[in-house]
Amino acid sequence: MDARLQVDALIREWRGGDTAARDQLVELLYPELRTIASAQLRRERHVSFSSGDLINDAILRLVKMGRIDIADRAHVIALAARLMRNILIDHARQKGADKRHHYKVELNPDIDGEQRIDLIALETALRRLGVIDMQLAELVEMRYFGGMPLGDIAQVTGLSEATLKRRWRTARAWLQDAVENPIDG
Rank of each mutant, 00 (worst) to 15 (best):
I68A: 07
E32V: 08
V76I: 08
D23S: 04
R73N: 02
I77F: 03
I68L: 10
D72T: 06
R67H: 07
E27D: 14
S50Q: 04
D57T: 10
D69L: 07
R34D: 10
R42Q: 14
I87H: 00
A78K: 06
L25N: 02
P31N: 05
Q40P: 06
G52R: 11
I89W: 03
M84R: 04
V47K: 06
I87V: 07
L60F: 13
A81G: 06
R82D: 07
N56R: 15
R67L: 08
R43H: 08
R61P: 03
M65K: 12
L62Q: 08
A92G: 07
L60H: 15
I55M: 05
R73D: 05
G52K: 09
D69E: 05
N56Y: 14
I55C: 06
T35W: 13
A21P: 01
A39K: 14
I68C: 07
L29D: 02
S38N: 15
T35L: 13
M84Y: 02
G52Y: 08
P31I: 01
A71Y: 10
S51G: 07
R61M: 11
D90P: 04
I89L: 15
A20L: 05
A74D: 04
D69I: 05
M84V: 01
D72L: 03
A81M: 06
L88R: 05
H91W: 15
S48Q: 15
E27Y: 15
E44K: 12
S38I: 11
E32A: 09
M84K: 04
I36V: 12
R22W: 07
E44G: 15
L79K: 09
D57E: 14
N56Q: 15
L29N: 00
V26W: 00
T35A: 15
V47L: 09
S50D: 02
A92N: 08
H75L: 09
S38P: 10
L83K: 01
A39L: 12
Q24G: 07
S51M: 13
A37F: 01
L41N: 02
S38R: 15
E44P: 08
V26S: 00
I59M: 08
E44I: 12
H75W: 06
M65R: 13
H75F: 10
N86K: 12
I77W: 00
M65Q: 12
S38L: 15
E32K: 13
A21F: 03
A74H: 04
H91Y: 14
R85F: 10
G66V: 02
Q24T: 10
I87F: 02
R42C: 14
T35K: 12
T35F: 14
L29E: 00
A80F: 09
R85I: 09
R34Q: 14
P31H: 04
Q40L: 09
L41T: 01
R45S: 08
L33S: 02
I70N: 03
S51R: 09
E32N: 14
L28Q: 10
D23F: 00
R82S: 14
R43K: 14
V63T: 12
A92M: 05
G66H: 02
D72P: 01
H91A: 10
R85K: 14
D72E: 08
S48F: 13
A58R: 00
L41W: 03
A92P: 04
N86V: 07
I77G: 04
